[in-house]
Design a protein around this nucleic acid. Sequence first.
DNA 1: TTGTTAAAAGACATCAATGTCTTTATTAAA
DNA 2: TTTAATAAAGACATTGATGTCTTTTAACAA
Lengths: 146, 146
Amino acid sequence: MFFSKSFGYALRSVLYVSAESEKQGKIPLEKIAEGLNVPRHFLGKVMKKLVKQGILSSQKGPNGGFFINDSTLQTPLIQFIHLTGEDDHFKSCVLRLRNCDASRPCPMHSRAEQLRDQWEEVFSKTLVSDLLNKDQPNYIDSIAIL
Amino acid sequence: MFFSKSFGYALRSVLYVSAESEKQGKIPLEKIAEGLNVPRHFLGKVMKKLVKQGILSSQKGPNGGFFINDSTLQTPLIQFIHLTGEDDHFKSCVLRLRNCDASRPCPMHSRAEQLRDQWEEVFSKTLVSDLLNKDQPNYIDSIAIL
DNA sequence: TTGTTAAAAGACATCAATGTCTTTATTAAA
DNA sequence: TTTAATAAAGACATTGATGTCTTTTAACAA
């Protein structure tokens, strides 16, 4: 029921950049890492994936940094699961049995399947924009402290 | 949405011992490890915890092994979560933020809380006996292959 | 009592996720 | 064109979960 740290870093970073880029333009890694209290270089690797996957854009050089693009706000959360390679959270058996499926269900199969399907639905239908609360004055605080 | 391997080993072992102990008496570690296709010595550590926690009993020496006790079949699945120290699956923030709670919710808080509560309820209400299907002739097969 | 069996315990190995540090590549500004 | 800023990439370290191997402890049987 737990996703990786990388997942959390990725989602929080996108929310951070989305929220901050209204005031400022591009946000450098340094600032994201400080703002979210996250290890800088490790975050760098996560950001790289976000850019490769097209969720964010980046630019090198002076005044460079990360910024949102046309798809950023419409990104469903399940994309962050793909990013961190945790897709099996929605597929694989809770007991980690290989040949557990509808035809050969493990004792937990049906109970777990319902709950997993609900998670998958939430993560497929919820978009980044749904998590952005621009009315909340201290929105950044809600994603800041690790 | 994923629990540890230890969790799976523990639950499957208890189901295995419960099912097998009808025919035979005590089940030695060796046989459980073979029957479930699980690394023997690692399983030994998991079994030790199951005994310490009172979910199973054990006896050393010739004809010894693991066997069920009065509480085994009435054990709720959440006990296996306690065993493997994964309680935070039901408590902690999906984004792993420390100060995320009802008063300072992260953007994922409410969505995740509902789903986590449902998992917790299933794991609290489902007992080992609910997963034992004695009518199914090849019940062991359903928990056997890793 | 002695030997054998099996759980319990401990020491170490492996692996993946995470984290740190350094180097390279690219872009804008001077 | 040179320099500085910044993302990208790579090498290595750390840590916790998992796995293997050996030693110790306890219980039954001969």
